[in-house]
Design a protein around this nucleic acid. Structure first.
Length: 481
RNA sequence: GGCCCUGUCGUCUAGCGGUACAAGGACGCCACCCUUUCAAGGUGGAGGUCGCGGGUUCGAAUCCCGCCAGGGUCACCA
């Protein structure tokens, strides 16, 4: 039997990082088994489904590289399929119309909670007479279709990640399968589609584990063989709670905007809840596909470790070629306003050497414009409280003399370094005593890549101008005229 | 509350009854080295009574039972 898995997001929100992991696992499994990865859009909630969410989910999947072999199938376009099967359940007496209004239902539910009774539908509409029905109809009530839950049934799943899980039908009630607007409810559409699309394995989040018995009941009612289920543990935040919006980074687009590389994100996500036999950390996509196995999936929930993700990202960043790294960084520069929307080829070549200085220094692409602003800004501000460290008169003279040497230098990194070091030797001071203020004059920051490389990248004219300005500012600081 | 899932260093995990597991790796943390700063890199270190309590066994992180803790779920949402 060939492996067919599906990822079935609902377009009621952006792609959650946990959903992305679910998609990854399905995708990896499909690739490993040379099966099919199908995409299905569960858009049966007419109130909350939005086109814009659909668009972001699709583009996020493409960005990640988790492309699908089949679909997307839209549930909203397959209504007749669900109606057909709803009809058959109705005809065989396994489902019935229910006219209870939402208001009546919530009333009953609240009462049940007050009386500490289990909250279950009480079956009011199970045996409605034709007369009662038409009375409700003439009231204008639109019925839902409920599944008639059999009593005392033992249900169990052989879960691919958890092993055998038992349920009893006692906890179940006559659940709704078709809403009053004629749209199917999740549990119903899901079963029909998984069967219709010949899905062999359903890998989904653990929050669906408690839906499984209901779905099992449906499979039984249709006399279908259920797929193999595998429930992936939840991803938790630092507080051991389901990763929530409040924590900041929970949606995929946020990671993209922060400058995480898709390969790094995928690698990190794969390790959150799955471990290859050899316990390796860094696994490029191909290795993951090769090693992926259902029995390596971890049952316990995992806490999202942002620091480790950053580390992983830095590992992938340094594997890029300088050209790739530059290309990757450019959108972030544009966004920061440091580069025009239409950058020129020459411009790219000009900044490439400078950008390369940061390849092993940043964790996220977004770090670059933040750390390297001084390069793109025409003017930089110098903070007096920092300059104070160097308010020694002799330093001014030294710098004025050094400036002369720099002006006459070939302006190559090694030559500049040699000039500064020799000058320091000559004057009997430590090279660092010159380098630190120099760095601050040039960048307005107290740390940066190697300062001689920075000077070269800045260009002779600009570099000298900044040093002159720095010395001047320092001078004014000492003699406020 | 009912039902269900889970429980190895701060975090992700290896481990599946016994060959150095008096628990290994990775991230993070600390120290030192390197060094022009910060990173990176190198070296070393701290950190776990394997949730707790009972069994089973010559032997248990590994098997069984109970407890506890955390999480998920109880919609005309998915």
């Amino acid at each position: 039997m060939s492996v067919r898995v599906r990822f079935a997001p609902s377009p009621t929100g952006r792609l959650h990082i946990g959903s992305a992991r679910t998609a990854l696992f399905n995708w990896l499994f499909a690739r490993h088994e040379k099966g099919a990865f199908v995409l299905r859009i569960e858009d049966t909630d007419r109130e909350r489904s939005r086109k814009e969410y659909l668009d972001t989910i699709l583009s996020d999947l493409v960005w990640l590289g988790l492309t699908w072999d089949e679909g997307p199938y839209y549930q909203s376009l397959r209504l007749s399929l669900y109606q057909e099967f709803a009809r058959s359940l109705l005809d065989s007496g396994k489902a019935y119309y229910c006219y209870c209004s939402p208001a009546e239902l919530t009333l009953k539910k609240e009462k049940a909670i007050l009386e500490k009774q289990p909250v279950k539908y009480d079956g009011t509409c199970r045996m409605l007479s034709l007369k009662q029905k038409s009375a409700f109809e003439s009231e204008g009530r639109k019925p839902v279709l409920r599944f008639l839950c059999p009593e005392n049934v033992k249900l169990s799943v052989e879960d691919a990640v958890r092993g055998k899980v038992d349920f009893s039908s006692e906890v179940l009630d006559d659940f709704v399968i078709v809403k009053s607007d004629g749209f199917p409810v999740y549990n119903f559409a899901c079963v029909i589609d998984d069967h219709d699309l010949k899905i062999s394995h359903v890998l989904r989040g653990e929050e669906h584990l408690s839906n499984t018995p209901r779905q099992l009941l449906l499979y039984r009612a249709f006399d279908w063989i259920p797929p193999i289920f595998g429930h992936l543990s939840i991803i938790l935040d630092e507080n051991r709670k389901k990763l929530s919006k409040r924590e900041g980074s929970t949606f995929l687009d946020e990671f993209r905007e922060a400058g995480f590389l898709p390969e790094a994100l995928l690698n990190f996500l794969a390790l959150l809840g799955w471990a290859p036999k050899e316990n390796k950390e860094k696994l490029p996509l191909e290795d993951m596909i090769q090693r992926f196995a259902l029995n390596g999936i971890i049952k316990s929930p995992a806490i999202f470790d942002f620091k480790k993700l950053e580390w992983m990202n830095s590992q992938y960043i340094r594997e890029l070629t300088p050209e790739q790294f530059t290309e990757a960084v450019i959108p972030f520069l544009k966004k920061a306003g440091f580069l025009p929307e239409k950058e020129l080829k020459e411009e790219k070549n000009r900044i490439l050497p400078f950008i390369s200085l940061y390849q092993e220094r940043i964790k996220k692409l977004k770090d670059f414009p933040e750390q390297a602003r001084f390069f793109f800004l025409e003017e930089i501000d110098l903070d007096l409280s920092v300059l104070k460290k160097w308010d020694k008169p002799e330093l001014i003279f030294l710098f004025e003399e050094l400036l002369g040497k720099i002006r006459n230098s070939s302006f190559r990194s090694e030559d500049l370094e040699k000039a500064v070091r020799e000058f320091a030797d000559l004057k009997g001071i430590k090279a660092g005593d010159l380098i630190h203020p120099l760095r601050y004059f040039l960048t307005g920051q107290e740390n940066s890549p190697g300062i001689f490389d920075v000077m070269v990248s800045l260009g002779k004219e600009k570099a000298i101008l900044r040093i002159e300005k720095g010395v001047l500012t320092l001078k004014r600081l000492m003699n406020p005229a």
